[in-house]
Write a protein that binds this DNA or RNA. Structure first.
Lengths: 371, 371
DNA sequence: ACAGCCGTAGCAAGCGCTTTCTATGGAGGG
DNA sequence: CCCTCCATAGAAAGCGCTTGCTACGGCTGT
């Protein structure tokens, strides 16, 4: 029924071992023999049996890319970039060798699915795993992740974090490329402050994500440095976003998912709570778009009545009206680099971790507050 | 080093066969035995060896999803939806059974990569493959695809097209969910015509894609029905977009990739060629965004000076200013359905092919032409 | 009480490939 | 001219799992 290595061997009048060696291209094979084998492969339309191969060789050509939400271009761009360094012949290299199967796994932000995918990849003896985007800060989940990754790592799977802080004790196992979310957040808010804003609303992402926390910390650091109140903020914020008691959460911060709707509703809420805000910083560009819509629906103009800023600089941000002031993250470059590291084409950063700079993009959606 | 089935069997004091049967949940195993085995699995932290399993069973739990450009939400949304029906425990079902690994493969729109990915999936003996998005109409490539898919199909891989017309002779092998691009395109242009537009520019996608052709055909059909000139259009358009001779391509149509930049530049070109156009239809929403930017940069207002329309109704379209008139495609639903069919949870549509309706969304970016 | 069954468990034969070790033949050196 | 060595090819032993078939009690039915 299906063509096997043995069939090819028979047709080429060599042993299966030789065919295998031709296909894998390690081990010397006489040119004439190789040619004969290749012809047989072609004639028979032979396709290697991946599972059999992986079983015998104890390795596979699968590379997993974990993302929180593939419908979000933030992840789409990174994952696509990573894949360009890994998959198929598109990497411009010759035919043989790097024929890996780069696969994107959509966790939907769920810790369980994240773990499940890791198990599935472990089952497949994946060659590498790239984890993108913010992590969930639940200690139990982090412990489970660390354990899983440790097992993967010592089964020979290369681990790369991309746009994600390394796990507390994973330094040794994994290379990490993390975005300077804190710095970017700080500079963004500094920009607003320098424009003259004093009352700045913040539409944050989900509480338990590292990305959310880091961006928020940057924002608050800027506020604090400028001597501005972050309100009701218990002195020692510590390392958790969790508010100490009731109402400890600053009035000007609203949390929600990283989507448009959240931006819309949170902005309405913010405007209700504090009609005197003159600027709104959103957790990311998508949220910012929602915020803009809310502002407009309330009959206010951007930036004359209210400034709005985003984060990420996704492609559509420049097309918003007015164009969105935001913080540019080199998503494509980071993804590609992660891919290269996963493939062993590039060395991990010194110390295993590299921080990727975030660049402030000042555009039309921010301006000095009205008189 | 690594824990194997045999280790688990030894610990549970049963044969490997029994362990396998417990894990696969077919075949009767006494409750007490099962429990013992499960405990051993847990104690040993056993993870099935995927390749070995696939080899022995001659099937794998991989499901491939091919997309043209994962950075584009159009594909991200579909792929994510498909994955919800396939991957991990997220589908709400119990623990056992549907533990498939849904993987997204980014072809970048390249025919070679598409084929390569298919080969890679064939290597892995994928359980199913979902092909999304428009196809390339090159006959050689189509033939290669048909051949490849035929081989996949009779190796037991289920094939599903999603938002993609079936290949000429693949009807038997595959289920197809195709969008009514032609109808959507037609209704969109009819809307513009009913508003009073007569000179309508069209920013089309890449020439060789089915999606491009179908949307364009819908547009032209509407024009023709209204007795409007599509210009220089050779009578028998036949089945190819390819223009007969030089300049046979209508003046009001410009082709380009499905990206923002193309929309921007094509619009500028269109405005240069025909300053009297009163509306521009873009190949999709992303292109439309670029078109809007160009229009604005030329100092014109939307929709007062020029109407602009898109296609797809991606999430950001409603947030454009003014909100984009477009054609809504139920991307998520279609993707999810494709996933279900791929999993065998749902039957393929009768006749193997279903056309999915496209709904016209009239919003602020279109209005009657001036004067 | 015995034949026949049903419900469970084990045996063992692969699945298709990789890889170590061994075999072979001709070239080069003593 | 014989022996050694390199280059190349083959034999065969698995890799870890699935599954058809067999084995074995204890029941039921007559």
């Amino acid at each position: 029924m299906t063509v096997t290595l043995a069939d090819v061997a028979a047709r080429a009048r060599v042993s299966p071992a030789t065919v295998s060696r031709v296909l894998n291209g390690n081990y010397p094979v006489a040119a004439s023999t190789r040619e004969r084998v290749l012809r047989a492969v072609d004639d028979l339309d032979y396709v290697l049996n991946g599972p059999a191969s992986s079983l015998a060789a104890a390795t596979s050509d699968l590379v997993g890319i974990l993302v929180n939400d593939i419908a979000d271009p933030f992840f789409g761009i990174m994952a696509g970039a990573t894949q360009t360094q890994i998959g198929g012949p598109g990497d411009g290299s010759g035919r043989a060798g790097g024929e890996k199967l780069a696969v994107i796994c959509n966790t939907g932000g769920s810790p369980e699915r994240e773990l499940t995918y890791l198990t599935l990849l472990q089952r497949q003896r994946a060659a590498a795993v790239v984890l993108t985007g913010g992590a969930v800060e639940d200690p139990a989940h982090q412990a489970a992740m660390s354990a899983k990754l440790a097992r993967l790592a010592d089964a020979g799977t290369r681990i790369v974090f991309c746009g994600r802080p390394p796990l507390p004790d994973s330094d040794a196992l994994a290379a990490a490329l993390t975005f300077d979310n804190r710095g970017g957040g700080r500079r963004l808010t500094e920009h607003l402050i320098s424009l003259g804003h004093r009352r700045i609303g913040y539409v944050a992402g989900p509480r338990e994500r590292t990305t959310t926390r880091h961006r928020l910390e940057g924002h608050r650091e800027a506020m604090r440095r400028a001597g501005l109140d972050v309100e009701a903020e218990g002195g020692g914020e510590g390392d958790g976003v969790r508010a100490g008691g009731d109402g400890a959460e600053p009035q000007l911060t609203v949390h929600g998912p990283y989507d448009r709707r959240s931006g819309y509703e949170a902005t309405l809420e913010l405007l209700r709570r504090a009609p005197d805000v003159t600027a709104i910083v959103a957790a990311n560009d998508t949220v910012a778009l929602g915020a803009c819509a809310a502002v407009r629906d309330r009959g206010m103009r951007i930036p004359q009545d209210l400034s709005v800023a985003g984060f990420d600089d996704l492609p559509f941000s420049v097309d918003a009206v007015p164009a969105l002031t935001t913080v540019r993250l080199p998503l494509f470059e980071a993804g590609a680099r992660a891919g290269r590291i996963a493939m062993g084409k590039e060395n991990p950063p010194p110390g295993g971790i590299a921080t990727i700079a975030a660049e402030l993009m000042i555009r039309g959606s921010t301006a000095p507050p009205r008189g």
